[in-house]
Simulated assay, not measured.
Amino acid sequence: MRIVLATTLAVAFAVPAVAAAPARPARLGLCAACHGETGMAQIPGAPNLAGQQLDYLREALRQYRDGRRNVPLMRAAIGPVSEADLDALARWYSAQMPQTQGTP
């Protein structure tokens, strides 16, 4: 009986977590080239974005877009992104789980 109850509770709590996962953003491609699709950097010097705070990512993206953060590469990459696209990118990366990067 305990196993059935524990399994039922585990499934009940897991389903909302999966349902709440954000959709893959349409504009993810260019970001993923440096930051990885799951937020783990693909090139040296690019920060990992997986698991960053949602509000931090939103504000950082706005600052790149608006020129308040003067990083030409990011300004060119983000371009004139809409608030909806900006929010989708921030939600996506904040929802990703950071991974430990092992040594080969």
Rank of each mutant, 00 (worst) to 15 (best):
A14F: 01
R58W: 03
D55F: 11
I78N: 11
T38Y: 03
Q52N: 07
D87H: 10
A84T: 15
A10M: 08
A50W: 11
Q52T: 09
P72L: 10
L86G: 05
L89T: 01
D66V: 10
L28E: 01
P80M: 09
G36M: 00
L61I: 15
T38C: 13
L30K: 03
G29Y: 02
P16E: 00
M40C: 08
D55W: 12
Y64N: 02
A46K: 06
C31T: 00
R68E: 15
Q52R: 13
D66Q: 10
V18Y: 09
R65M: 13
Y64R: 12
R62D: 15
G45W: 03
Q53G: 10
I3Y: 15
Q63S: 14
I43Q: 13
G36Y: 07
A12M: 04
Y64K: 12
A6Y: 12
F13A: 00
L73D: 05
R24P: 02
G39H: 08
I3H: 08
L86W: 00
V11F: 05
V81L: 10
V71Y: 11
N70V: 08
Y56I: 13
V15L: 02
P22T: 03
P25T: 03
C34W: 04
S82E: 00
G39N: 01
L61M: 14
P22F: 01
R62P: 13
N48K: 09
P47C: 04
A14D: 06
I3Q: 13
L73W: 09
M97F: 09
R91E: 13
M97Q: 15
